[in-house]
Design a protein around this nucleic acid. Structure first.
Lengths: 107, 107
DNA sequence: ACACTTACTTACATAAAGTAAGTTAATAAC
DNA sequence: GTTATTAACTTACTTTATGTAAGTAAGTGT
């Protein structure tokens, strides 16, 4: 790949949040910390990909995995500060969607 | 797929702009209308995918393809109003990238 | 006539995502 | 005390998307 790179930070940001499901996962976690199966059913992602994506997002420091050592163990995923700082981005998408998306237009 | 759908407009917006290269293409076109080979070399996308993506974006009404009937023909791609209305979204990403992305952190 | 450019398309290879079943650990139900 | 159920994954396999490279058609330049 040539990689002429317009703006490296912008491009790297896209490799993180432009991955399939990443934005929806973060959108969902903006509501508060949640369990694996809850995210899975809320956004309709497969467990296989959710597992993979949560690891990516954790590695990027956007998501935190917390194990509550009760019986049975409870595991919750939440946004870090860096993750929460994406809120304006998702809000901008939401606003754009609200005034520019026509759900009846099927392609 | 279950498709529990959080917000259908938001999800549809993501299927458009979250496709690989779509955001970068629009980012690039915010600078003004451009030719195929210019977009190709600026963002490092392959001709195969650029061709496909430009058609998607045209179908979604974000991009306009204009043929200038000179000799040889010149074909330029530009943003429609709907495409330009994505600017705040890309700006939000840019701002987030500027203060949250660390280029040295390699994963 | 021959090489070069633009805007693509086609054929093929690799990577990412979807589907479904399996695993481990714990608890609840019969 | 076997059987069933739930949570959080993982594994194996299939389908889809993307990358790579070569090819095409129309025109220009030498």
């Amino acid at each position: 790949m040539a990689d002429q790179t317009i703006c490296p930070k912008f491009e790297k940001a896209l490799t993180i949040i432009n991955k399939r499901w990443a934005a929806l996962i973060i959108f969902q976690l903006l509501e508060g910390s949640q369990r694996f199966c809850n995210i899975e059913s809320s956004i309709g992602v497969s467990g296989r990909v959710l597992s993979e994506r949560l690891k990516d997002l954790e590695k990027e420091g956007l998501v935190k995995r917390t194990v509550y050592d009760e019986t049975p163990v409870r595991i919750e995923y939440s946004l870090t500060e860096k993750g929460k700082s994406l809120k304006p981005v998702l809000q901008a998408i939401q606003e754009w969607a609200d005034h520019s998306i026509d759900l009846n237009q099927n392609d």
